[in-house]
């Protein structure tokens, strides 16, 4: 319907059959021209360092002496390292609980902001503020004050009949605190959801409403499919980010993963091994194990995405 109007008076430029091969070559050429900046960046900035770290994973390298080949030793040692196993446990809990909670919060708030109420601009900015503050070094002081003895969380929870006491110093409560910190910074996925919601044509909703579809059904039948590429993006990226969480763990725990190892996230331990203990070979092995695990999860996600991610621009 719409394409008709866009199609101008000029003759259609469908290539004739003999030109097909030439057209393919042209498509290749222009494809690589568009890809050129990324290709340069990939080879100069990323691929080399990645291969270097892969090599280092099989060496004993302490930054000060030349790397020494040790085969699989770094990898086998991982299994005997109680702190490594602790970091795996901490990270898995964080990924499995934190990611869905954060995404649900971000989607809920994005829907709220997309509901067409007044003052949206104000709310949108205010809701993004946590993400800005969360990236500042001062977040360590601010967040701990919220969760200390007599901090706001303690006051509210005690008021509601909960047990008094701050969460910061309690190894059993630091994980919920870290998950709340991540959830509180729902701004980034929220903005992406919002941008995705803007791609959903209003007409579809209007038409469905007229046909008698309730809000819930419209959400399920129109919003979710139209939003699925963005949901997929957020799910994948937030999962990867949760696996690699570093900055917040570093500043909140003062860089050591305490108390009692309860915030010893994978990449934090990797950093401590690599830079504090100068065991870069060991850290590289850790990095590649993590990369393989995330890679596997990513591959599964891409595979299954065919079933539920719907692209308007692509026929199935």
């Amino acid at each position: 319907m719409s394409t008709v109007e866009l199609r101008g008076p000029s003759a259609p430029a469908t290539p004739a059959a003999p030109g097909l091969k030439r057209a393919r070559r042209a498509e290749n050429r222009i494809g690589y021209a568009f890809l050129a900046p990324w290709l340069i960046g990939f080879f100069v900035l990323t691929a080399g360092p990645m291969l270097a770290s892969l090599y280092l994973a099989f060496t004993d390298y302490n930054l000060f002496r030349a790397p020494e080949w040790v085969g699989l030793e770094n990898f086998t040692r991982l299994l005997d390292d109680p702190r490594y196993l602790q970091s795996v446990k901490v990270t898995l809990v964080y990924v499995l609980i934190g990611t869905p909670v954060k995404l649900a919060a971000a989607l809920a708030v994005a829907l709220l902001l997309n509901s067409g109420m007044r003052g949206q601009g104000f709310y949108r900015s205010a809701f993004y503020a946590p993400s800005l503050i969360g990236a500042s070094v001062s977040i360590a002081i601010v967040w701990k004050a919220m969760f200390s003895d007599a901090g706001i969380v303690d006051v509210v929870l005690t008021g509601l009949g909960g047990q008094p006491g701050g969460w910061v110093g309690d190894p059993d409560k630091t994980m919920p605190m870290m998950i709340l910190l991540a959830t509180w910074q729902f701004g980034a996925p929220m903005v992406i959801f919002l941008a995705g919601l803007k791609q959903v044509p209003k007409e579809l909703h209007e038409a469905a409403a007229v046909d008698g579809a309730g809000a819930l059904r419209r959400f399920w039948n129109i919003t979710v499919p139209m939003l699925s590429p963005v949901i997929f993006f957020n799910l994948l990226l937030e999962t990867i980010n949760a696996f690699q969480v570093f900055a917040s763990a570093y500043v909140i725990s003062g860089g050591q993963g305490g108390p009692a190892g309860s915030t010893l996230f994978y990449t934090l331990y990797l950093y401590l091994r690599g830079f504090q203990d100068s065991r870069m070979g060991y850290a590289s092995a850790m990095a590649w194990v993590l990369a393989l695990v995330i890679g596997l999860i990513t591959a599964v996600m891409f595979r299954t995405s065919n079933a539920w991610v719907h692209y308007s621009g692509e026929s199935k």
Binding site: T46, Q244, L270, A283
Partner: peptide
């Protein structure tokens, strides 16, 4: 390129 924690890329880069 998203998969590898950036810490191990710091020195080569």
């Amino acid at each position: 390129t998203l998969l590898l924690p950036f810490h191990v890329l710091i020195i080569p880069q």
